[in-house]
Amino acid sequence: MSLIVKNLQARVKDGPVILRGVDLEVPKGEVHAIMGPNGSGKSTLSKVLCGHPDYEVTGGSAQLDGQNLLDMSPDERSRAGLFLAFQYPVEVSGVSNANFLRAALKARMPEGEEPDAVAFYKRLRATMQRLGMDPKMTARAVNEGFSGGEKKRNDVLQMLILEPTCAILDETDSGLDVDALRIVSEGVNSLRAPFRSFLVITHYKRLLDYIAPDVVHIFHRGRIVRTAGPEMADYIEQHGFDFLKEDDA
């Protein structure tokens, strides 16, 4: 169980085909990495799984814990346990970090119920401290005026608060310096659990030094073309993606 993707095909609405039959299975308790050259469709896979309106699914299936993701709206997928740490987290002006997270938690509760304010702020502050975030950021508008690194941290903060059952990290390492990378990775690792799965999309091996994957998939031209153990990341670090040219030939 957990995330099961079969022959998933998708295109940009009225545009080119990007996903050409993705097969992927991420069992609970495991961390899978997806590596691949630029433009291979890695990020598109994460957006399509989360229901981004720019894309149209043309075939295949995607299930999370037995639920058909493709039948669900983006917010339903989120409430079903799917989380995406964005490659480029979006600014939400005028909405404070704290209010945004409270609204997100509230959306997961039965109608009319709200998270306990005192407990929420206590937990929020403690989590921010772990991520090395300034407590003042609770009152700042979501990602507005944040540096690239702050935005990534903020996304991981949201993940730690929302505690998804399946988290997709889309190039979360980009824009992070070494210290931030370590802190963010520790945050992610703290969430690792037998009932939770991770899909880590990255261009570089360095993130995988901190978040050790169980499986590494190579993504190329809209599909997974290789699946191997963690040693694959080392291979790519040394040799790059040149070997994929054979596939093209």
Binding site: P74, E91, G94, A107
Partner: peptide
């Protein structure tokens, strides 16, 4: 749409996301 998708990805319905964005705009 990017902003709405972002908010929806965190579990807010589209209407909740819009409300939050609009309220944010006029909050002050």
């Amino acid at each position: 749409e990017e902003m709405l998708f972002y908010m929806q990805q965190r579990g807010l319905t589209r209407a909740q996301a819009m409300s939050l964005a609009v309220n944010g705009f006029i909050n002050d």
